[in-house]
Design a protein around this nucleic acid. Sequence first.
DNA 1: CGCATGGTTCGATCCTCATCGAAGCATTCT
DNA 2: AGAATGCTTCGATGAGGATCGAACCATGCG
Lengths: 224, 224
Amino acid sequence: MREGPDIARIASLVGDPARANMLNALMGGTALTASELALEAGVSLPTASSHLSKLMEGGLLTLASQGRHRYYGLASAQVAGMIEAIIGVAEAVGPKRVRPGPRDAAMRVARVCYDHLAGEQAVAMLDRLFDRKLLLRDDDQIRLTPAGASHFSALGIEIHAKARRPVCRACLDWSVRRSHLAGTLGAAILDKIIAEKWARREKDSRAVVFSPTGRQAFERVFLA
Amino acid sequence: MREGPDIARIASLVGDPARANMLNALMGGTALTASELALEAGVSLPTASSHLSKLMEGGLLTLASQGRHRYYGLASAQVAGMIEAIIGVAEAVGPKRVRPGPRDAAMRVARVCYDHLAGEQAVAMLDRLFDRKLLLRDDDQIRLTPAGASHFSALGIEIHAKARRPVCRACLDWSVRRSHLAGTLGAAILDKIIAEKWARREKDSRAVVFSPTGRQAFERVFLA
DNA sequence: CGCATGGTTCGATCCTCATCGAAGCATTCT
DNA sequence: AGAATGCTTCGATGAGGATCGAACCATGCG
């Protein structure tokens, strides 16, 4: 019976199975169309459309219209972070998973979190970037050092501090329970990993699987 | 239509207004009885009881029976963290708050987060503890230095690394958007603040208001 | 032992909301 | 222009679940 932020409103949006499946699919970072999301959620197109307008009205999604396609995506990294937090609790209290399936194992090693890399590999990478003084912890902020800037620049990753969105951000990993790198730099690194074909996205999943040579390249560049 | 952790189940538990109010009340850290929670949520006792058993079954609450009283509390700091994340999103997308009320301002300065202090004061404190090398950042972990251990010991705060729960943990602050200190040490510090009467809990709120002299004492000890 | 207090269970009611088919818009392709 | 694709709106249906009164356990008090 108290005012304050309407947490029930937000939570109930996530609380419908169809919508939860949609959001889960969007955690992959790529924006999807209404029909793709309908398929993902296992509901008809009209139903999906109804859900999507509710999520939009709730501020959880953004919409990009391109021609006759309408691409829905998560509204912000903050929303993605909230969903990861919910996933974390669901995992913890969940059905005492008999044994983690193979796909699940791949997810723990490396997966996409909104627009950047997550999982054991990502956590290890952030550790090494600190060790090599390419990044610097400043309170809870993460900053790019001059050495880091030139290092990433040499890799073809140019970072301009753009509006609003920070270059580096810590994002809590639900599987490892430690931080990995988000922000524009985190996104750019994932882009490079995919562009160089070091790894590919598992179809219909957030898992990211490295090829043998790709893994070597990744370790050489980021885990050296 | 995918398996994985049942995020909709967890979110829908938080998604009911009555349950959300209960969880919000429990964010204060103190365990409450069914009747207190019924009052808080603005529902009848039978209704509250029904909600509470659902929250229990969902693993979000713990129950401590003492005589004829049954105290409900949040199941873990992880659950508290999830709720803070949801609050953060609700704040962000929320009704463009006309202007933050007085109670709201007090919440931003200092409030209780489950069992430790949060808000601007708490974030400032963690910063200073790092500056004074009483705590040490190690990757995402926070560790107590020997100097820190003796410092807190001198204040009458003895920390034994007990089972499971870490001594220090970073917890993301939804108002400041930076980390503050959780874990057994964070809890012990809040205990001391209350025990020394430096501050008191605002009734029916998570806000913590310092007395003039209490604030001086707090700043001398933790923000020196 | 009764009686009061705190809490849960049961049953009935009611209402919200998820769902889908059919029809309606909008955009692109031929 | 006409046809096809992608998506939304409308209307009707149905099910799940939130709610409360009343009855039912359990614990503590006199």
